[in-house]
Design a protein around this nucleic acid. Structure first.
Lengths: 146, 146
DNA sequence: ATTATAAATGCAACAATATTTCATTTACTA
DNA sequence: TAGTAAATGAAATATTGTTGCATTTATAAT
């Protein structure tokens, strides 16, 4: 599931999207790939306190545009960012998966393995994208609860 | 579907939740009941410009706590508020319905009539609430598109 | 290797929003 | 009708989103 990525692979990823291989970008990539949960901008800031707030903001924006990451809002409405594992491209995200927000540890998990069941909308509504949000206890926190 | 509510019914609603029947609260209720889409705080502010911003903020908060309304984030992460039609109570929301965010008119619809299909989560994950977000063109905008 | 240039960064400044404090007003109770 | 607790409005602060610009850096061309 979690592939250990090397710096070279991150550089290739940036190359592929015609982005310059800068230190801040490589650090953001390696941090996000090392986690199986989405990361909020506040979290990123506190870990990489030497990188400017605005730089992070712009890195996240350009990564999202290029389809490297996708944005997901947690229960409090704060933006979290996660690596796009499936076939995402610029302006064409396929993040039609399930997001799980743990009410205890506040982590946001992207459950990529799950596919969304079909759904028929009322007349006239033409859906393009779906995201299912589930909230509750994640596997770690439900273990602790015993 | 859309019930025309009288002032008396709004007063009863506030009574039921041990909230004082004040003018700002009644106006917020009547505005939200008159729409079939969720309302953002900016929208509320612009319509009721004589009510203080902070008052609106607190009214929305207390309504949400009491289970009168629920919060839903649109594609941009801004909070929208809608009346809870089903059996919601304080700290126990049953907003397990579908939210539809129109990419054209930006409106957020609560599709209460739809029920979510079952979903089995990975081992250990205990879900309490579900919300499905769909985005695309709403019935009005898809008509216009022809 | 060196240089030119376009892009990325960091900083300052600004805008918008969320949130707290407190004095005043208002709704309800006795 | 008076007393009380709650709600409001206004000011002030914190946090977050966003833009402009000078400086630095990565890359392409020489």
């Amino acid at each position: 599931m979690t592939h250990a990525k090397t710096t070279y692979q991150f550089e290739d990823l940036l190359d592929k999207h015609q982005l310059k291989k800068t230190a801040p970008r490589l650090r953001v990539l390696s941090m996000m790939y090392s986690k199986n949960t989405a990361t909020s901008q506040p979290d990123l800031e506190s870990v990489m306190h030497d990188i400017d707030r605005v730089t992070l903001y712009r890195i996240l924006n350009v990564f999202e545009e290029k389809g490297i990451i996708h944005k997901v809002f947690d229960l409090n409405g704060t933006a979290n960012y996660a690596i796009c594992h499936s076939n995402c491209g610029a302006h064409k995200h396929h993040d039609e998966h399930v997001h799980f927000n743990c009410t205890n540890c506040k982590n946001v998990y992207c459950l990529n393995e799950l596919t969304l069941p079909a759904l028929n909308l009322p007349g006239g509504f033409k859906a393009e994208g779906f995201t299912l949000y589930a909230s509750g206890l994640c596997s770690k926190c439900s273990k602790k609860a015993n």
